[in-house]
Nucleic acid binder design. Structure first.
Lengths: 251, 251
DNA sequence: CGCTATGTTGATCCATATCAATAAGTGTGG
DNA sequence: CCACACTTATTGATATGGATCAACATAGCG
């Protein structure tokens, strides 16, 4: 403990950013100061591997800016599991259980990451009852999100997953009929469990439903047609949409 | 509240069975008595739907005997998500979040189920700090199990999933080279994300690796050959194996 | 401005689903 | 306890979603 890599101790200017997460907002000031004392902030360029599955979980990570891809590998294959955007934590479960990471993480953009020593998180968990309860809420949320993702994969074809993904993104874009994909199509294809080639063709297949694609720009010309095809369900597609500092919408 | 369906209040004879779950073992005697006071036990025949996805979560369920299939549906399709065996709880996350069930549940055998009113669970969660911490451990466990299942589906072919499933079952059977499938092949195929026809052919494809199947009886003649093909990974295949009252093996 | 990574398109292959028919269990009631 | 009925499992034939391989186009980026 105490070894500083780069970036040094966490500047107090970030204290507020991290604190606004549900996970930390109800902690006692004491516990929070204690946690931050051993934490630090690092800046990463894009495409940097931060953690690798199988390693022991030394830090709880908080994405302050940028974007992080969680992915998994087996037998030479690789798949994207989730994309984490500010301001959220990741690998909380591994931290709490003091168990190896189940997923790897790499930046997909230039990112600023807060690193909180796992043993400090566990100490706060033991000492602070409200923090323990906040972790329950967070983990229940994470659990339900993975269950939804798993239903998505097992119950839908790749075309249906894409259609529903676009509708979810439209919601995140505030309902606008034009928005940009938040990352490369290559990453999207892996996230949706398909190949880049298949994704390319899937976009084509959605033209009859009024989906127009130009690079990363998506135009949903006829939301009703797309919805009729996609048949979105709150039990799969309602994901916690984030407005900085608060989760909006029950999940 | 207070409406008794059938089975009446929980007989004290079950108090110990439920208490031995990690989830409840560290509760104060007070909180535990409080929880049990409003709970009851019901016996179900096989193939009975107990809860349906989308409903609000009125009870935390505990499987005391038998087996329960968690499954999910969308647009006329259905898939098995997990099988819950004694003694375990299910739908804890929905209970805690007071959110709708994401999965349905039906008995696959004659089963005895304890029903604990969700509001009592939430009350205990608020009042009992140790219980809150036990829930964290349980949810982290659940989360990691779903992540593993999701990796299994996204990274492996159906044949590879079957091979690894058999190896996991072998572990559960204490390493014996002969054991029985714990439920119908139809259910197994859905759990593994394939059709019954495909499962039937998959078993055939494993013959070269020394897998002999006769009804539900499995004989793994050459574990080393099967392992060489299946390439099991602790980051996917180590699932919490249960010895009544305790989880054995880190997950 | 050219290199390299990303994305598209076409041809083909493979895994898995579907449809159809049969066989084998399994449970139920006479 | 057996016979029937119904469900589950197997097997074969075929269809299809999606992967792979290959070539080319395009877009970022240094």
């Amino acid at each position: 403990m105490g070894q500083r890599l780069n970036g040094g101790y966490m500047p107090r200017s970030y204290f507020g950013d991290v604190r606004q997460l549900h996970l930390f907002s109800e902690m006692t000031e004491d516990s929070y100061e204690q946690l931050m004392r051993g934490s630090y902030v690092q800046n990463f360029p894009p495409q940097i591997d931060m953690i690798h599955e199988g390693e022991s979980s030394d830090f709880l990570h908080v994405v302050l800016s940028g974007a992080v891809e969680l992915y998994a590998s087996w037998n030479g294959r690789e798949t994207s599991m989730d994309i984490v955007r500010p301001i959220s934590t990741f690998i909380l479960a591994a931290t709490i259980k003091d168990a190896p990471y189940l997923m790897s993480a790499r930046t997909i953009e230039k990112s600023r990451i807060a690193l909180i020593p796992s043993q400090d998180v566990r100490a706060a968990f033991d000492a602070d009852n409200d923090f323990a309860r906040a972790i329950v809420t967070e983990l229940a949320q994470c659990y339900r999100t993975v269950v939804k993702t798993h239903k998505d994969v097992k119950l839908r074809t790749s075309l249906e997953r894409l259609a529903n993904y676009l509708l979810r993104q439209q919601v995140r874009a505030g309902g606008a009929d034009k928005f940009d994909l938040p990352f490369e199509k290559r990453v999207l294809s892996s996230l949706l469990g398909m190949t880049p080639e298949n994704l390319s063709r899937a976009f084509k297949s959605l033209i009859p439903y009024g989906v127009v694609v130009d690079g990363r720009a998506i135009h949903i010309q006829s939301p009703s047609d797309l919805r009729e095809f996609a048949k979105p369900s709150p039990l799969i597609d309602d994901r916690g949409s984030i407005t900085v500092g608060g989760t909006v919408g029950e999940t």
